[in-house]
Design a protein around this nucleic acid. Structure first.
Length: 848
RNA sequence: GCCCCUGUGGCGGAAUGGUAGACGCGGCAGACUCAAAAUCUGUUGCCUUCACGGGCGUGCUGGUUCGAGUCCGGCCAGGGGCACCA
């Protein structure tokens, strides 16, 4: 019997599918639609195991839905702008465009070898001028709709590279590439007004019931809604300052007012007072990185100005400038209540300000209650607070708000942690922001007829700064409005903009505008989106925002882009370290008797814990090699087996070999069955072992269907093993038609997961048609249902035996059968049972 | 610091409050073979027993229940998210 030749078979079937255009999705159909999408890859060079896992899961779902009769859209594209191309350009002297498209060509080939059911006719890369031209159109339309603006912002500035850095690119206060100390710098930047949708982005999370709770929670925290009160304080210099607080109840515990160093008042004071200016400057020298914040000490500067307490004008509070007050949140000013806020407490202890408790835990005495090193933030009743005394925290909050609102000195307000999305990047390999700055007319969008703003063909990467900015001619243009000399914006879009609407473009990649309304109405929202949890906030939040923008502009009537979201786990592998403590690559070691040695030597190597495959730990295994060795179906099967899809999976050679053995085993089962008569004959009523195989077949159909519906791939795999085992152990005497039914069903069930093998098996079984065009099998409920049920019998909750009973047997007969069991009698030791609990068709528990 | 998730055999993991360990990997024994590979069969939580059997088992600890891996409280451990957000 010939072994299954995966290499030959996979190449063949991929060509057949391609030639018959099996996976090209029409934009109109009488069938129901299903849009399955995996997060598109960055073309870094080669696909890795994470891609394989991600795209296999999506592919299984796409093929499953297709078999169920859906018109399935399953596209693929490339998130192609970004830094690695620039780095390659700098390091290797190549053009970032050439580098990117070469990578895409390589990776497209690798994905095609996976046998993915993708509509390749819709493929695009975000660096295609066709795509980013549409994005520029959207940018201008968003601008005209008031969703884009330009403003000054504090950013991490790397003075050596001459560019803005993201927070993640600042390591211990230094730029990750240059090593230069990062400065805080105010720069004019472009923003998307995502905060306009803050409340909606938050409240709509409740309706995303096919999203993981974890992701919804992370977004909720990120948006960070908090309700509070804006309060006006009159200052001794005749001006006033607004503060925001979520704890108006603690107003009588106030001991200072603190301003952000960037607060307009601080700035004004700094202009007149050089000491204040110097203090503000020292605050700015601190980085904005987490590490810098964590270690930063509270610093304050007394302005000499005082603020009048809103309920007691004679009560004067010092007005400080404090480094821990952020301009970007609330009003950039706070009142400090040291007894009930940890930061305020640390600040007060340092500058020797009063600490007066005003919320007393119930059961404590206001006279003796003291605050030590920790502020009291729990519940309690008010004290030392005049008309609030005795109230609960909630009552006091309301009372303060009510009084101050009545006096016009306060206003209930909602604040969000979410900031507007800064999209400017001083990077040349991105979508140019289609705006022009004119000395006379200000900001002017590029004229529709002048779009797209194309990137120059050649970019010079020598020297610091943005090559677009230093390009001799690119930025010099005429103002579209007045015709005078003007400057083109040289910033490009954050690459997260590119990925914020690509799913909408897939609906019709030939649309004249950015998105075809008709196609979007048909396909959106994406029914199932699959990707890594690392995008739980940024990408997914931006895409939700963009979809609302598209809605506002009339391109779609949906608000939420992804009806279902699944976040898959990472692919891990054990790690190896040599005696010098350096990481060793998987290919550099060999394993003998569970120990690892340097390849070709007796030098033992330390085996470290299993971690996500990464370049730095050298624990990656290239998918290409595995596909060469075993074929795509084996690697696909591995990715679906064992680990639940949302959890991490560990790649092992043994596991891969096991999958490959299973591929061969299925092939053998089919070879043995292929001459069985006659194909797909109705199976007459049978009994005994033949009936058991029929039952196993239909149970497998029911279970696999249910598992795939719910993306429980690992369980579907286990069900298929169970069916294969049942076929393998069924006696030769059973009718051929029964075996054939089982075998054909097995092929239909494995098809979404191992599509090439399934086609070869289907052909071997004598079918002319492709299995990919076969409908999904249906389970016969009569065969799924068990007529004889094994009921467990417990004594005091401990299993003592089992009885076989007909489905729906009378309680009394079940009870007497249970009591008749010998081990039950032994356990009862002659005493009558105190109680017998009979759960029909399930269990009997005898209480002794 | 705040919020969230996860703890089950040697390993990955199954299990609507109802027979814990399905299925896979690995191990052990056997068949086939001159031999090996491949394949097939059996076996495989721990302790105890010649055996029949018995006892113990889902991180620890209480509780609810006829019955808890599953529900509730308190710990411990690991992982993740957010973090001067007023």
């Amino acid at each position: 019997m010939a072994r299954y030749d995966a290499k030959e078979s996979e190449k063949h079937w991929q060509a057949v599918w391609d030639q018959r255009q099996c996976f090209v999705a029409p934009n109109e159909s009488t069938r129901p639609k299903c849009y399955v999408l995996e997060m598109f890859p960055y073309p870094s060079g080669r696909i890795h195991m994470g891609h394989v896992r991600n795209y296999t899961m999506g592919d299984v779902l796409a093929r499953f839905r297709r078999a169920q009769g859906y018109n399935v859209l399953h596209p693929m594209g490339w998130d192609a702008f970004g830094l690695p191309a620039e780095n390659a350009a700098r390091e290797k002297g190549v053009n970032p465009r050439d580098w990117t498209y070469a990578n895409i060509a390589t990776m497209r080939g690798e994905l095609k070898r996976m046998g993915l059911a993708i509509d390749w006719s819709r493929e695009f890369a975000t660096c295609d001028p066709d795509y980013y031209a549409q994005q520029q159109r959207l940018f201008i339309e968003f601008y005209k709709a008031g969703l884009v603006y330009r403003a000054e912002a504090d950013v991490n500035w790397d003075p050596v590279d001459g560019t803005v850095l993201a927070n993640e690119q600042v390591i211990e206060g230094r730029g990750w590439r240059s090593g230069a100390l990062v400065e805080r710098k105010k720069l004019s930047q472009w923003f998307f007004k995502i905060t306009e949708y803050a409340d909606e982005l938050l409240s709509a999370l409740d309706r995303l019931d096919r999203w993981p709770d974890k992701v919804r929670l992370m977004q909720k925290n990120w948006i960070g809604r908090s309700e509070g009160l804006r309060v006006i304080f009159d200052l001794s210099n005749g001006s006033r300052v607004d503060i925001f607080t979520t704890r108006p109840d603690t107003l009588f515990g106030a001991s200072f007012v603190a301003l952000s160093p960037d607060h307009p008042l601080s700035q004004r004071l700094g202009e007149k007072d050089s000491k204040i200016a110097a203090f503000i400057e020292s605050c700015h020298r601190l980085g904005t990185s987490e590490a810098a914040i964590e270690t930063a000490e509270k610093m304050g500067y007394d302005t000499g100005i005082t603020a009048a307490h809103p309920f007691a004008p004679e009560w004067k509070l010092p007005v400080m400038i404090a480094n821990f007050v952020l301009m970007g949140y609330g009003t950039g000013a706070i009142f400090g209540c040291p007894a009930h806020d940890q930061r305020d407490l640390e600040f007060a202890r340092k500058y020797d300000l009063p600490v007066l408790p005003v919320v007393i835990p119930d059961g404590s005495d206001a006279k003796t209650f003291e605050v030590g090193d920790e502020a009291y933030v729990g519940p309690g009743h008010l004290a030392n607070s005049r008309f609030l005394d005795g109230m609960s925290v909630e009552e006091a909050k309301n009372e303060v708000a009510r009084r101050l609102e009545a006096e016009g000195r306060g206003k209930r307000e909602v604040n969000y942690r979410l900031r507007d999305w800064l999209v400017s990047r001083q990077r040349p390999w991105g979508c140019p922001i289609p705006m022009i700055r004119c000395g006379k007319c200000g900001l002017v969008p590029v004229k529709e007829s002048d779009l797209p703003v194309l990137l120059p063909d050649e970019l010079q990467f020598k020297g610091a700064g943005n090559p677009l900015d230093s390009h001799p001619t690119w930025k010099h243009v005429d103002c579209p409005q007045c015709g005078g000399r003007a400057l083109r914006e040289t910033d490009t879009c954050d690459t997260f903009v590119d990925s914020a609407w690509y799913f909408a473009r897939f609906c019709d990649t030939t649309a004249e505008g950015p998105v075809s309304r008709k196609a979007a109405d048909y396909w959106l929202p994406v029914d199932q989106y699959i990707g890594g949890v690392e995008h739980a906030i940024l990408h997914l939040l931006y895409a939700r925002f963009f979809t609302r923008g598209l809605h506002r502009l009339g391109y779609t009537d949906v608000d939420e882009p992804f009806a279902g979201l699944f976040t898959q786990g990472m692919v891990c592998h054990e790690t190896y370290k040599g005696s010098d403590g350096q990481w060793l690559a998987v290919g550099e070691i060999e394993k003998r008797d569970g120990k690892a040695y340097l390849k070709g030597s007796d030098l033992e190597v330390t085996i470290g814990r299993s971690e996500a495959m990464s370049k730095s730990k050298k624990n990656g295994v290239a998918p290409e090699g595995i596909v060469d060795l075993y074929g795509a179906d084996t690697i696909r099967w591995f990715m679906l087996s064992d680990s639940p899809p949302e959890r991490d999976i560990e790649w092992t050679n043994e596991g891969a070999e096991g999958c490959w053995r299973f591929v061969q085993r299925i092939w053998r089962l089919i070879e043995e069955a292929k001459d069985l008569p006659p194909p797909r004959t109705p199976v007459a009523s049978v009994d005994g072992e033949a009936l058991e195989l029929r039952r196993a077949t239909h149970r497998a159909v029911a279970a696999v269907t249910d598992d795939l519906e719910n993306l429980r791939f690992n369980r579907a795999v286990a069900q298929i093993y169970t069916l294969a085992n049942a076929i393998g152990t069924a006696p030769p005497s059973i009718p051929g038609a029964v075996r054939r039914e089982a075998v054909e069903t097995l092929v239909l069930l494995i098809d979404p997961m191992m599509p090439h093998l399934a086609e070869s098996c289907w052909q071997a079984l004598g079918h002319e048609a492709l299995v990919v065009d076969e409908p999904w099998p249906k389970a016969d409920p009569d065969l799924v249902r068990q007529d004889v049920i094994t009921i467990a019998v417990q004594v005091n909750g401990k299993l003592r035996g089992t009885i076989e009973m007909a489905r729906g047997a009378e309680k009394s007969s079940v009870e007497s059968a249970a009591l008749a069991l010998e081990p039950v009698a032994r356990a009862l030791d002659g005493k009558p049972p105190r109680r017998v609990v009979v759960v029909p068709d399930r269990i009997v528990n005898i209480v002794a």
